[in-house]
């Protein structure tokens, strides 16, 4: 039951990142996604791995909370396609993770597939630096959580995912050179 709730929280967090254009919404989405992914990865990753994911997500969220366009920016005008993406992507991940794939860890599969898919789509569709960096941070956390599906992942992928999420959000934006 805890895993199911964690998977839902992970999907909700990534959806917030997809649906938000401003720093508060992006920060909250990052935090929720990290907490949810840590929850579903906990049985395989162990406390250390899960803690690393939460810590990485929290630091990335804190950074996003202090930089980027102000406000919540959730569901701005014209975001209906993004809302449809979140719902349809979540349903597709749920169907594939539960019905098509077999074996233990359905919640983890759902959370990782929806996290990777939606964060990747957000990175592809964004034109704003802070949004793209946040999507990349969540993508790194989801990739790290996906390592729990492999045999004997150890703690390193989770530490690396957390480190990547932090590095991504703290990286400076590009200085554009004129022609």
């Amino acid at each position: 039951m805890v895993e199911v709730a964690a998977a839902f929280v992970a999907w909700l967090g990534v959806s917030l990142v997809v649906l938000s254009d401003a720093r508060r919404g992006l920060a909250l989405g990052t935090l929720l996604a990290a907490a949810g992914l840590a929850g579903v990865a906990l049985p395989e990753a162990g406390p250390a791995g899960a803690l690393a994911l939460v810590a990485g997500g929290a630091v990335a969220a804190a950074r996003r909370f202090t930089a980027g366009p102000g406000g919540w920016g959730i569901l701005p005008p014209g975001s209906t396609p993004r809302l449809i993406l979140c719902v349809a992507g979540g349903l597709l991940a749920l169907w594939v993770g539960l019905e098509v794939m077999t074996g233990e860890g359905a919640a983890l599969r759902f959370a990782v597939m929806s996290g990777v898919g939606l964060a990747g789509a957000r990175a592809l569709s964004s034109a704003d630096t802070s949004v793209a960096q946040t999507a990349f941070a969540v993508l790194a956390l989801a990739v790290a959580a996906g390592a729990a599906l492999g045999a004997d992942a150890g703690v390193w992928p989770f530490l690396a995912g957390a480190g990547a999420a932090v590095a991504v959000t703290w990286a400076p934006g590009r200085v554009q050179r004129a022609a």
Binding site: G120, A127, R174, Q176
Partner: peptide, 23 residues
């Protein structure tokens, strides 16, 4: 993050898709 002529978000698009597809 390197000095260049494309915006950051444009630079991250294709690698983002790549990482998502590979993951």
């Amino acid at each position: 993050a390197l000095e260049g002529r494309r915006p950051t978000a444009a630079c991250l698009k294709a690698p983002g898709v790549a990482v998502a597809l590979l993951a």
